Computed example of a mutant assay.
Amino acid sequence: MVLFAIFLGRRVDATLRPQGEWIEVEGERLHYRTLGEGPPIVLVHGLGGNMRNFDYLPLAELARDFRLVLLDRPGSGHSPRSSDARAALGEQARVVAGFLRAMRFDRPPLLVGHSLGGAVSLAVALREPDAVAGLALIAPLTHDVPEPPPAFKALAIRKPRLRRALAYTTAMPASIARGQQVLTFVFAPEPPPRDFPVRGGGLLGLRPQAFYATSTDLTALEHQLAPQEARYGELRLPVHLLYGDGDRVLDWKVHGQALAAKVPQARLQVVPGAGHMLPVTQPQLTAEFLRRAAGDAFCATVRS
């Protein structure tokens, strides 16, 4: 099983090769991709995802007006992670904030976060508010969740040794067997596109190191969000929220409506009949959302 996991992981890496460039930040080697010129927009993916999750967006169209930067978070996609300690929410925020500085943008960017990437983006804005012009949060995780959704419970492995042992033995066959079931849950009530394993980078999640990193991310969230929740009222920058009212991964009222209630300037848009994977299932609507958020963020930057 170990040999099978290693072999298949290498096949996936050979099929979905890195698309972008590399940069060293805070001791982490980060993989990122840049498109276009103009005001910067940095996109951060969610739990178990990677930058390819945003490839359904009309990137070429957006790149005519903005400089798009798609990032693989440490431990995700093609970015390795130096240690499990870097999975903590504050540590992820420190690395992303360091990445924003290292990119030497001519102005603070609009920071876009999907799902767990939303929690990370909020942590960045609270940690270094001057580093970000605004937040565009897509189905973001914003508040503490007592337990993970049913499809993610198999990832809640608290002991690192057991986590690594499973990553290189049973995790990959189990992921292959349950793959369609998990995708159906994550995308529900919308159907997952058939090309998501390749175009959306779904296959990258089958690798042993990806399972290990995703499980580490999930377990590291325990007791991390409550202190952050208490500080949301400190946010002064523009905040835009996009949620599907059918999201089965994160309830839009618990995470979207609750955040909007704590941040007076936040604007919440709820999409009827949509689920959690809005960048994939609602690409044009999401692109329009990003344009509105960018307009607010960069206008606010100019006014300040």
Rank of each mutant, 00 (worst) to 15 (best):
L237K: 08
E26Q: 14
G36W: 05
A258W: 07
G179L: 08
Q269V: 10
E24V: 10
N53I: 14
A60P: 09
G246N: 04
D55Q: 13
T286A: 07
R29F: 09
G20I: 06
L250M: 06
L166P: 02
A220Q: 04
V69I: 13
H114A: 00
L135G: 01
Q284H: 15
E21L: 12
Q92F: 00
A171T: 02
R10G: 15
P150E: 08
F152H: 10
D251H: 07
W252T: 01
Q228R: 14
D217V: 05
R94D: 09
R158N: 09
G77I: 00
I138N: 01
R163D: 04
R17Y: 05
D245L: 06
R86Y: 09
S304W: 10
I157P: 03
L259D: 02
V271R: 10
V198F: 13
R231D: 10
G27L: 10
A85P: 08
P149A: 14
P192C: 02
D195S: 12
E147H: 14
E234N: 15
R10H: 14
T15Q: 13
R127F: 11
Q269F: 13
L203P: 03
G256S: 09
A136F: 00
G117Q: 00
Y243I: 03
F7M: 13
F289I: 05
L3F: 12
Y32P: 05
R52K: 07
G38F: 02
V270P: 03
V69E: 01
A60T: 12
R292E: 14
F66P: 08
H114G: 00
L71I: 12
A287E: 08
V280H: 04
R33F: 11
T219V: 11
L30S: 04
L206E: 02
D72Q: 06
A226S: 13
P18H: 09
R64E: 13
V25A: 02
Y232F: 14
A188P: 14
A14Y: 13
L116V: 02
K153L: 13
L16Y: 05
L155G: 02
E26H: 10
I6N: 07
F152V: 10
E26D: 11
C299S: 11
P208Q: 01
A297R: 04
L137C: 05
G244E: 03
L141F: 04
G46T: 02
G275V: 07
D144S: 10
A151C: 13
D13C: 10
R163T: 03
D195M: 03
Q257A: 12
V95Y: 00
Y168G: 08
F4I: 14
V271N: 08
A210V: 01
R67N: 05
E26P: 05
L203D: 06
A213Y: 04
N50K: 03
A258V: 04
Q181F: 12
E21M: 12
L221H: 08
T34W: 07
R231T: 05
R194H: 13
P238K: 03
N50A: 11
A287S: 12
D106S: 15
G201C: 05
V95M: 03
V249E: 11
G244F: 07
P129D: 11
A119Q: 01
R10E: 11
L221F: 07
L162R: 15
V270K: 14
V112W: 00
F289Q: 03
P108F: 01
G9A: 07
